[in-house]
Simulated scan of single mutants.
Amino acid sequence: MHTLTRTPTTEMEVTSIRLERELKEKLKELAGNQGYQALIRDLLWNYVQQKSGDYRPQFSRADIRASLAATAQKEEHCVLTGKLIRPQEPMLLGLTTNGDMVPLSLESLAG
């Protein structure tokens, strides 16, 4: 999950949101010591950044469990190097430890 600079809660606006009891309990389980409200803020920030095009997940080679050859169908950026991968260029798809498939440049796993 994308880590943001923490704003003190005293500088935040209070907002009320209604959640199903089951959803709130699941969020509490997932959040652990972080607290479910902080988890909800992280989720909302990630959503906003993804939709605005500002989101750039941070991965390392240790996060990649497996890779397979692929061909880019649209412009992509390697999650390890940031290198541009143009449409129809060969690339790799990396399976992360979280089960996500991410774009990788051919040379990103070398060496």
Rank of each mutant, 00 (worst) to 15 (best):
Ala110Thr: 09
Tyr36Lys: 11
Leu109Lys: 03
Asp63Pro: 06
Met91Thr: 00
Thr97Tyr: 08
Glu20Thr: 04
Glu13Ser: 11
Leu30Gly: 03
Gly53Leu: 05
Ser52Val: 01
Glu107Thr: 10
Leu30Lys: 15
Leu104Ser: 03
Leu27Gly: 11
Phe59Ala: 01
Ile64Lys: 03
Leu68Val: 07
Gln73Ala: 09
Val14Trp: 07
Thr71Pro: 05
Asn46Glu: 15
Ala66Phe: 09
Gly53Val: 07
Gly99Gln: 01
Glu13Phe: 06
Thr10Lys: 15
Leu95Ile: 11
Tyr55Asn: 01
Ala72Ile: 02
Val14Cys: 09
Gln58Asp: 12
Thr7Tyr: 09
Leu27Met: 13
Lys51Thr: 11
Gln88Arg: 14
Met101Gly: 04
Ala66Trp: 08
Glu13Gly: 05
Leu106Gly: 02
Arg21Tyr: 05
Cys78Val: 07
Tyr47Arg: 13
Gln88Tyr: 08
Gly99Arg: 01
Val79Ala: 02
Gln88Glu: 14
Asn46Met: 14
Glu75Gln: 13
Leu104His: 03
Gln58Pro: 04
Thr97Gly: 07
Gln37Cys: 02
Asp63Ala: 09
Asp63Glu: 07
Leu93Arg: 13
His2Phe: 12
Val14Asn: 09
Gln34Ser: 12
Leu95Phe: 06
Gln58His: 12
Leu104Arg: 00
Arg65Ile: 10
Asn46Arg: 11
Gly53Arg: 06
Asp100Lys: 13
Lys24Gly: 11
Lys28Cys: 03
Leu93Val: 06
Glu13His: 15
Pro8Leu: 09
Arg56His: 13
Pro57Leu: 09
Leu95Tyr: 04
Arg18Cys: 07
Arg21Glu: 14
Lys83Glu: 13
Thr71Cys: 02
Pro8Ala: 11
Pro87Ala: 00
Gly35Asp: 03
Gly53Lys: 04
Leu19Ile: 10
Glu89Gln: 13
Gln73Phe: 06
Leu109Met: 14
Tyr36Gly: 05
Tyr36Asn: 08
Thr3Asn: 13
Gly82Leu: 07
Val79Asn: 00
Ser60Pro: 04
Lys74Met: 12
Leu106Asp: 01
Leu80Tyr: 07
Leu4Gly: 12
Ile17Tyr: 05
Ile64Val: 02
Glu25Ile: 10
Glu11Phe: 05
Leu4Val: 15
Ile17Glu: 00
Gln34Trp: 10
Leu84Met: 09
Ala70Tyr: 00
Val48Asn: 06
Leu84Gln: 11
Met101Asp: 01
Arg21Trp: 05
Val79Glu: 03
Thr81Asn: 01
Ala62Leu: 09
Ser108Ile: 04
Lys51Pro: 08
Arg18Glu: 15
Leu109Gln: 06
Gly32His: 06
Lys74Trp: 10
Thr3Trp: 10
Arg21Asn: 11
Arg86Leu: 03
Arg21Met: 10
Val48His: 03
Leu84Tyr: 07
Gln34Asp: 12
Leu80Ala: 05
Trp45Ile: 15
Asn33Trp: 07
Gly82Ile: 07
Gly53Met: 10
Ile40Lys: 07
Gly32Pro: 01
Val48Cys: 00
Glu75Asp: 07
Ala110Glu: 15
Thr9Ile: 13
Leu43Trp: 02
Glu22Gln: 10
Ala66Asn: 14
His77Ser: 10
Arg6Phe: 11
Asn33Gln: 14
Asp100Gln: 15
Ser60Lys: 10
Arg56Met: 08
Val14Ile: 14
Thr3Asp: 12
Glu107Tyr: 01
Ser67Asn: 12
Gln88Leu: 12
Asp54Ile: 00
Thr15Trp: 13
His2Leu: 12
Asp54Pro: 01
Arg86Thr: 02
Pro8Gly: 02
Gly111Cys: 04
Ala66Ser: 15
